[in-house]
Amino acid sequence: MELRHLRYFLAVADALNFTKAARQLRIAQPALSRRVQDLEDEIGVDLLKRSPRGVTLTAEGKLFLEKTRQLLKMADESVEQVRALARGQFGSLHIGYAPSPTVEILPPALAAYQRAFPHVNVLLHDASRREIVDGLQDGTLQLAVLPEVVNMEAEGIEFEPLRSYPYYVALSPSHPLTRLKAIPLEKIANEPLVGFARHDYPDYYPFVERIFRPLGVTPKIAVECDSGSSLITAVETGRGVSLAMSVFKVVTGKRLVLRPVAGSKDEIPVGIARAKNGDLTPAGEKFCEFLRKFSKRTPPA
């Protein structure tokens, strides 16, 4: 049984006339009659009663007409959805992200993307660096937006930088160092540091060690946190200071004070991560275009 035979039957059932149906379908009337007869023979029942005045539906034909409409509607919707998927206008998109570092890029890009492609279901996954890499590797995440971290290429992840931020020192508002406009690295080295947990953020420790290497000192990580929100709370309550990207001030508001590191020109890139051998859908490719577009916009002061 072919879909075109069902469409032939539907045309005849709607017109109740082979000649009119043949004209609508732009095929010869004898050929249409044979195709409908072939369909009846395949099913094993009469769907139509034929007479010189036209045709009428049998009881079986009425039931089959109802089911045929449903089937053809599903077939047409399936074709349209597949085409929309190929155009990047349909489907689901799983994206991993680091909330604080991406706050100036991801929200406006996502809002514009959803307006443009309302039938794409975007699911955001707030996850640790380790969870994001694992998700990209096993395909549960199609892409991610986060700061660049070490060893990503060795793990089969490619990174596309979008915007870079200098790193600052985050302090509680009552900390004595807030009186300085810029804080020397030597003073930071004497402070207990609040950082991220080694298991979830294995790149954090190499990053901190690289920052303090010119001083020949090993920084003391006093508190390990499993998320940005817990890090903010730890610093706010005076348990230590933290090295954070300058964009962190957008998230912390007045809860913390951020000061630049004196003499430092280092910056941390934020961008798109994706599996090198992954199969990014057209919807994912279009989302990357929106991320690139909004990363170039000047953030509000």
Rank of each mutant, 00 (worst) to 15 (best):
P99Y: 02
V45A: 15
R83N: 10
V103G: 06
K73L: 06
T68R: 00
H119R: 10
A112V: 10
R115I: 03
N121L: 02
E77G: 03
I105S: 05
G135T: 08
G91R: 04
G44F: 09
R53Q: 11
H119N: 11
T58C: 09
E80V: 09
R53A: 12
D134H: 12
L47C: 05
E66I: 07
R130Y: 07
A112N: 13
F90P: 00
Q89P: 01
F64Y: 12
G96I: 05
G61F: 01
V45S: 14
L123F: 14
L123C: 11
E60Q: 15
K49A: 08
L85F: 15
R129S: 10
K49M: 07
V120Y: 07
E80C: 03
L72A: 04
M74A: 14
R115G: 07
A86P: 02
L93D: 02
L123P: 00
A84W: 06
H94Q: 09
G91Y: 10
A86Q: 14
K67S: 09
V55E: 05
V122F: 10
I132H: 01
R69L: 01
H94G: 03
I43Q: 13
R115V: 06
A116W: 02
A75K: 03
I95Q: 00
T58M: 06
P118W: 11
E131Q: 12
E80P: 01
H94E: 08
E40I: 03
L47G: 01
P118L: 06
E77W: 09
L65H: 05
I132S: 01
R53E: 08
D41I: 08
N121Y: 07
P108Y: 11
A59D: 13
V103M: 09
R53W: 02
R130M: 11
L85A: 14
S92K: 14
R83P: 00
T68F: 03
A111E: 15
D41P: 00
